[in-house]
């Protein structure tokens, strides 16, 4: 049992995204301060379980953030 999944159990689905977003934002802010709001927003569109995986795995988080940055740059090009 992981601490991360335990935070989701009692929460309605909307609140789950909120909690995941708060945690995700904190992590991404340390990596990409200027893009944290957008990257977090993009990654929150993924399944909650994927987001949980990001919170628990720095390597997975990094890979998804890199993907999101690439998509964002392509979108803004």
């Amino acid at each position: 049992e992981s601490p991360a999944t335990s935070i989701l159990a009692p929460a309605p689905s909307g609140d789950q995204k909120q909690m995941l977003g708060e945690r995700l934002f904190c992590l991404i802010q340390t990596m990409l301060p200027s893009l944290a709001a957008k990257i977090t927003g993009m990654l929150l569109e993924l399944d909650n379980l994927d987001v949980l995986h990001m919170l628990e795995s720095p390597e997975f988080l990094r890979s998804k953030v890199d993907e999101a940055v690439a998509v964002l740059q392509d979108h803004e090009a």
Partner: peptide
């Protein structure tokens, strides 16, 4: 460039609405 509202931005303390239609 276009100014469509994407991606949605998440800000701590602000209720997340995602891509739900406004």
């Amino acid at each position: 460039g276009s100014s469509i509202n994407w991606p949605p931005e998440f800000h701590p303390g602000v209720p997340w609405k995602g891509l739900q239609s406004i």
